[in-house]
Design a protein around this nucleic acid. Structure first.
Lengths: 249, 249
DNA sequence: ATAATAGTGTCTCTCAGACACTATACC
DNA sequence: GGTATAGTGTCTGAGAGACACTATTAT
């Protein structure tokens, strides 16, 4: 198929034709997650086009030829939610043939974490059209499985494509990483109480935690430092406010 | 750009043109890992073509339009190493523009685990041309970073593309999952001694483990069951052979 | 004072690390 | 018997869970 004479790398690259073989389309989907009183919440867009027209979907878009995958995910967040500078991490790549009826689309799933109020500010400021829905996780611990979104009637509302599976993997990842990675602070304001950190963990894990040992291990972790300030407008003793330990370097 | 009249999903799909926008090429790369006396080992192929001609690379290939990503990775293992039926897991997707000088190639990295002897049998039987190299990990714990492969002279040998980074992420993943996932048994024969499990863990983690507590927690984990058989041809007291607990269902 | 939550002190249980000891193979 | 590794029993220290108690705010 190719001549046997040695080629220089320059000659090879000049002769290379990237369109020789058909290849899948490549997209990114971003699960933008925050916490609300009722539990984990994610940002959805209502699809106005086929396929899955009318269904809720995770914000997504095709990967541009010139941008990295991380850049594509960050771009989607700006375009669909008006948000930038939030925690963003690659989750998994979904590539089953048939996951998108149009054509072969391989999608790199990302997740992003943000404090509710920052999300609401960004959505208002950029006037984007999103729906914030509470996630219902029908399994415990890190068993895994799909995640449900409850519609207005209380019945589970179907999601577009394989996005319910993406959210399931996301919750599993969050539950697994929460204990050793500083993820919870991405879901909290700059200054927070120990109780708020515990509530965030409990929301993600879906179970109650022991207050005493949670406080102890959190303080011993070195991840947070006291500010000396306290809550205001409480109807009880105000708790001290902490902040994340400034990252060295 | 599109007419405003409602379309049925069938009409939409019929009119959809997947080649409307250029998109990246999509490949899978598989790090096939085993353990040897000197540490972790991985399977490499010597590139005969540009780019990176002459360098060691992880076995890889482009994703076919009809196969899933998992299937593509399994196919690469069969074609490049003559191996099938081994543990295979998606690692991460690498998509920086410029990671392949030919054109934009996004690669889904996988890793596979196999016992050395099964690997050697498969390589002999299928007469594939691979190089098994010991990995040198220049960092401890789960700090992360690139991984080196030592050449014949003892100096680090450069790898093709970003494959050193893939191996680095792989070692980090293995070290993180080893404690709670039954990965070590994939690197051992069907029947093994407790000492062999510990050695496998020590090779992956890159540090010594406490014998007593390792035995205790391993036996308490329920992941292994004694066979009643014992080692033979030892020059000391023979250890009992265990096997992985048969998976329920 | 009462209600409500923040925060401290201490006991217990579990588990990892350490060490001592016994068991069983080959030489 | 000597050597090497398998395997057991027990002590200790660290950390999680549980509980009792004190502290501080609003009403």
């Amino acid at each position: 198929m190719k001549p046997e004479q040695p080629q220089t790398e320059e000659q090879f690259l000049a002769a290379y034709d990237a369109s020789e073989f058909p290849h899948p389309s490549l997209s990114v989907d971003v699960a933008l997650v925050t916490t609300g009183p009722a539990g984990l919440q994610a940002v959805f867009v209502r699809r106005s086009e086929h396929p899955s027209r009318g269904r809720l979907a995770l914000p997504g878009g095709f990967v541009d030829m010139r941008e990295s995958l991380d850049e594509a995910a960050a771009r989607v967040l700006v375009q669909k939610a008006g948000l930038s500078g939030v925690y963003l991490e690659q989750l998994y790549t979904f590539g089953d043939p048939g996951r998108d009826p149009r054509t072969r689309v391989v999608s790199v799933a990302y997740f992003a974490l943000v404090h509710v109020e920052e999300l609401e500010r960004a959505v208002r400021a950029s006037a984007v059209d999103i729906e914030l829905r509470t996630l219902s996780v029908p399994w415990e611990g890190e068993l895994g499985g799909a995640v449900e979104v409850l519609g207005a009637s209380g019945a589970p509302e179907p999601l577009a494509f394989d996005h319910a599976g993406m959210l399931g993997l996301l919750v599993k990842r969050l539950r697994g990483k929460l204990a050793y990675a500083p993820l919870a602070y991405e879901l909290l304001p700059d200054k927070f109480t120990l109780r708020q950190v515990q509530e965030t963990h409990e929301i993600v894990l879906g179970r109650a935690l022991n207050k005493d040992s949670f406080r102890r291990s959190l303080l011993a972790s070195g991840e947070i430092v006291p500010t000396g300030e306290h809550e205001t407008d409480t109807r009880h003793r105000p708790a001290e406010l902490y902040r994340q330990t400034p990252r060295k370097r």
